[in-house]
């Protein structure tokens, strides 16, 4: 057996989970009130988000301290790894719902409206004749233009792919116990992620102000902004995680043998990278 002789660390009593539950609840109560048009909603939402941030500092801080004290054996480390992998799998399935919506609209429902299904076409919208990209027979959100694949999106693809290389270089440096290079390549990864986000923000402004492509531009706008928006949120989160492990690497928290946090963040980063490739192909190119 691969088990070490020492005991599996079972923490006793933690107040962070209940803080987390309260924080999440405050956040969603704020968001719900905001959606309902109550003036106080936004403030409550930000309070909830601040509480979530506070909780994460506290909870992760506790775990980092325990890790530094060497309380986690190999088996605990394996639990963390497996947990992270299943978490990423659940994230993949979250994106699958939105990709599913995109495929359903493009492959089935829009062609049906266009006449592939005669009765749908004739009884519902017989005048509708606009294939993808479309904002539907109601021209919801008004005429719009799309963003071409081979401008900023192609550059962004290169940026993310490169960042996948730099984080691997950082990992190799970490395994070779070269702290300087580890931190350097991490900083490069953070920089690439940030530039990606900058371009993405620019593209959104361009879409809204010049192309009249908005979240309200029918099914095209809905799928475009929800997919790229959720991906952007994940890149933002991934960048924050990268910054955290950059600081931790600089402080010498990781050893060549034990650096779960680094690997967890690296896996997450590769995951957002792969989702982007799916986006690039199915949202921009095709």
């Amino acid at each position: 057996m691969a088990h070490t002789n020492d005991h599996y660390y079972v923490p006793h009593g933690s107040h962070w989970p209940i803080v987390a539950s309260v924080a999440l609840t405050v956040g969603v109560v704020g968001a719900a009130n905001w959606f309902n048009g109550n003036a106080s909603g936004q403030a409550i939402l930000y309070l909830g988000l601040a509480m979530v941030a506070f909780m994460m500092f506290g909870w992760f801080g506790t775990v980092i301290n325990e890790s530094l004290k060497g309380m986690y054996n190999e088996q605990v480390d394996r639990s963390f790894r497996q947990g992270m992998m299943w978490f990423i799998f659940s994230e993949v399935m979250f994106f699958a719902a939105f990709f599913g919506a995109l495929f359903y609209a493009r492959v089935l429902s829009v062609p049906w409206l266009l006449g592939e299904d005669l009765s749908t076409h004739q009884t519902l919208w017989s005048a509708f004749g606009e294939n993808w990209p479309t904002n539907g027979p109601g021209n919801v959100g008004g005429d719009f233009q799309t963003i071409g694949a081979w401008g900023i999106p192609a550059i962004n693809t290169l940026l993310l792919l490169t960042s996948g290389v730099t984080i691997t270089l950082s990992h190799w440096a970490l395994k070779a116990n070269d702290k300087g290079k580890t931190v350097l390549w991490l900083i490069a990864t953070v920089a690439l992620g940030s530039v990606f986000l900058g371009f993405q923000a620019y593209e959104y402004v361009h879409a809204y102000s010049d192309l009249n492509l908005t979240l309200e531009s029918g099914i095209y706008g809905s799928t475009f902004f929800m997919l790229t928006g959720f991906h952007g949120m994940h890149v933002t989160l991934g960048t924050i995680m990268l910054i955290v492990i950059t600081i931790r690497a600089a402080k010498g928290h990781f050893s060549p043998e034990q650096h779960f946090a680094f690997e967890g963040v690296a896996w997450y980063w590769h995951f957002v990278d792969v989702v982007w490739l799916g986006l690039f192909i199915f949202v921009y190119v095709l």
């Binding site: 089935l108 539907g136 979240l215 309200e216 029918g218 099914i219």
Partner: peptide, 12 residues
Amino acid sequence: GTSFFSAAGGGD
């Protein structure tokens, strides 16, 4: 204002 489930916007 999304149109995932509204045929007018091309959704379903």
